[in-house]
């Protein structure tokens, strides 16, 4: 059980990488329950790698990943899923030739209680009616924004304690992007805890309670979403504005 003033997730000096090289060189980060925290930074800083070390897609080489007070870095991705850590990866993660309904059912793959699955679908459909409206459509036939909505709805099937959202707006047209950030706002209002990685830093920070800047494999700066949006250095480097 996590108390409200204790971090839901803590990364302590986490190092990780692919092959011999290190991408993360000592990442420290706290994620508080019920908050959205947005991770921004340049390409190659290791933002997506952070999410992979939390969901278990990538093992760490040093440090600790602590979830609800317990060290989880030795657990498999399936075990972490069972703890309520859901990862929505950067690439489109729907199964394109399966229907929207089948995709949603896949979100509940590790659940066995059909009554519970039905309840979760109803709850997800309240936030994202598209999963009912387009239930028989092939997921691959939806627009980019609609697909992201279904992905996010699917992530709710396990009633997750923590949602890891990796670049949800990447490659989308402006209308679809708007749809995605509206979806994140909906999750925020529903009290979900989200660690968001977003290249579109302005939109990401705008929907977040807190933000963190990742540079060269380390967290260089942490602040409130609004505070970082007003920070001249952050603005100059990541928001496309000139410094005052």
């Amino acid at each position: 059980m996590t108390r409200i003033n204790e971090p839901l997730l803590q990364l302590k000096d986490v190092t990780a990488g692919y092959g011999a090289g290190l991408v993360l060189k000592g990442v420290n980060l706290d994620v508080m329950p019920g908050q959205i925290i947005c991770l921004i930074g340049p390409n190659g800083a290791g933002k997506s790698t952070v999410l992979k070390t939390i969901s278990g897609l990538l093992g760490i080489k040093g440090g600790e990943v602590i979830f609800k007070g317990h060290e989880i870095s030795t657990l498999s991705s399936k075990q972490r899923l069972g703890l309520g850590i859901v990862h929505v990866p950067q690439d489109r993660s729907l199964f394109p030739a399966m229907t929207v309904w089948e995709n949603i059912l896949m979100g509940a793959f590790i659940l066995k209680d059909q009554k519970l699955i039905n309840e979760r679908i109803e709850q997800a459909a309240e936030l994202f009616p598209i999963i009912i409206a387009r239930k028989n459509a092939a997921a691959g036939s939806l627009s980019g924004g609609e697909q992201k909505q279904v992905e996010v709805a699917r992530s709710l099937m396990l009633d997750p304690a923590l949602i890891l959202l990796d670049e949800p707006s990447i490659g989308l047209d402006p209308k679809s992007r708007k749809l995605v950030f509206e979806s994140i706002s909906l999750l925020s209002k529903a009290g979900r805890t989200i660690l968001l990685v977003e290249q579109n830093a302005r939109s990401g920070l705008a929907v977040s309670d807190r933000g963190a800047v990742l540079e060269a494999g380390r967290v260089a700066l942490v602040g409130t979403g609004a505070g970082l949006l007003e920070d001249p250095e952050v603005s100059r480097l990541y928001l496309g504005a000139s410094s005052k």
């Binding site: 969901s55 897609l57 991705s77 399936k78 899923l81 069972g82 859901v86 990862h87 990866p89 690439d91 993660s93 729907l94 199964f95 394109p96 030739a97 399966m98 089948e102 059912l105 896949m106 979100g107 793959f109 590790i110 699917r154």
Partner: peptide, 22 residues
């Protein structure tokens, strides 16, 4: 359910793994 996990693995192996498919 097994068939769904097979089709999911065919279409997107990483995503299937993230959803708990072995």
């Amino acid at each position: 359910k097994f068939g769904r996990s097979v089709r999911a693995t065919v279409q997107n192996p990483m995503s299937a793994q993230l959803l708990g498919v072995n």
